[in-house]
């Protein structure tokens, strides 16, 4: 037996922890790209903002997209509900709300992450300290994940938290690819210039996949392969396909548990079938951007259907 509000709290707790981690990785990528782009750095930071889904919020602040301002906005700004610090605040508040559903280790890992990052992000981060701070964010979120996987019972509580993780992650990966989709299109793939190599590496790095790409594909960066890796690969833990395999699995456990077959499970299954049975050529035929726009919309809808079916509100 689980309260709807608790399921909601678990779902959003995980989403926001995932979001904090993704944000750190995006900032990391942005910083690397900016280093190589010189005068065009502002453009890079703008694309980081749109990958983060924070373009409008940033524009509302009226600031220019300089590295310093964007980094501050994405890491610390309380006006940005998706900044690392806002995300951790929200995650911790949700964790406090569902405290009785969490193991002591899980709660303490979240609380400690919050305390330590609150200290690190109390003031604007100096450029020289940025790598250290980003590492700390990734480490803290990894510790939370470790405590969670290591101690939580595999029951519905676990399932709802997993749904949050994978809905958020799928959204994040889809956005990253969508913002940079033009460098993956076949029409420009012939270039192979050093600039494009940087772009491709940056995309892979933003999902921590620049090493694993080489284990799965040939050493050279080939745009279609990169798209395949991030969208359709079954083994890559941040690919859309991987996310949907997990979503279907956990929705399946819930359905089994409650002895029913809800609409949201069907929705997830359909999306998974689409991902599993398509080749990257099919995706390019539909149009990469169109494909991703549809995906982001369906993914959001899945989130809403989960909330409605399991009485989150």
């Amino acid at each position: 037996m689980l309260l709807g509000r608790t399921a909601n709290g678990l779902y959003w707790m995980s989403r926001y922890i995932e979001r904090a981690e993704n944000m750190a990785r995006l900032v990391d990528t942005g910083q690397r790209l900016a280093l190589t782009r010189g005068a065009e750095a502002v453009e890079e930071w703008n694309s980081v903002l749109s990958s983060a889904g924070a373009e409008q919020a940033f524009a509302a602040s009226g600031a220019e997209a300089t590295q310093h301002r964007v980094v501050d906005f994405l890491l610390r700004d309380p006006a940005n509900p998706s900044s690392v610090m806002s995300s951790l605040d929200t995650a911790r508040n949700n964790a406090r709300m569902v405290r009785t559903a969490l193991t002591r280790e899980t709660w303490e890992s979240i609380n400690e992450a919050w305390m330590s990052l609150k200290g690190l992000l109390a003031r604007p981060v100096d450029d020289r300290d940025l790598p250290r701070v980003l590492d700390a964010i990734k480490r803290e979120t990894a510790l939370i994940r470790g405590a969670f996987y290591g101690t939580m019972l595999r029951n519905e509580i676990f399932d709802f938290a997993q749904l949050g993780i994978y809905v958020e992650r799928a959204d994040n990966t889809a956005r990253i690819v969508d913002v940079k989709y033009y460098v993956l299109l076949p029409s420009v793939s012939w270039v192979g210039s050093s600039l494009d190599n940087y772009q491709w590496e940056a995309i892979l790095r933003s999902v921590s996949a620049h090493r694993s790409y080489r284990w799965e594909y040939e050493a050279e960066y080939v745009p279609q392969n990169i798209a395949d890796f991030l969208l359709l690969n079954r083994r890559m833990p941040r690919s859309l396909c991987f996310c949907y395999r997990n979503l279907t699995q956990h929705l399946g456990y819930l359905a089994e548990n409650y002895e029913e077959s809800p609409q949201c499970l069907e929705l997830a299954k359909n999306t998974l079938t689409g991902l599993a049975e398509s080749s990257i050529r099919d995706v390019f035929d539909i149009g990469l951007h169109e494909f991703l726009a549809d995906f982001i919309r369906d993914n959001n809808q899945l989130g809403e259907e989960i909330a409605a079916h399991y009485r989150f509100y």
């Binding site: 037996m1 309260l3 709807g4 509000r5």
Partner: peptide, 24 residues
């Protein structure tokens, strides 16, 4: 269970909490 007011309502003359499977 730890409940808040928003989880509860009166159903058939009893107080019930909103769970993922309906009111209990």
């Amino acid at each position: 269970e730890l409940v808040e007011g928003q989880d509860l309502r009166v159903v058939d003359g009893h107080v019930a909490m909103r769970t993922t499977e309906g009111y209990k």
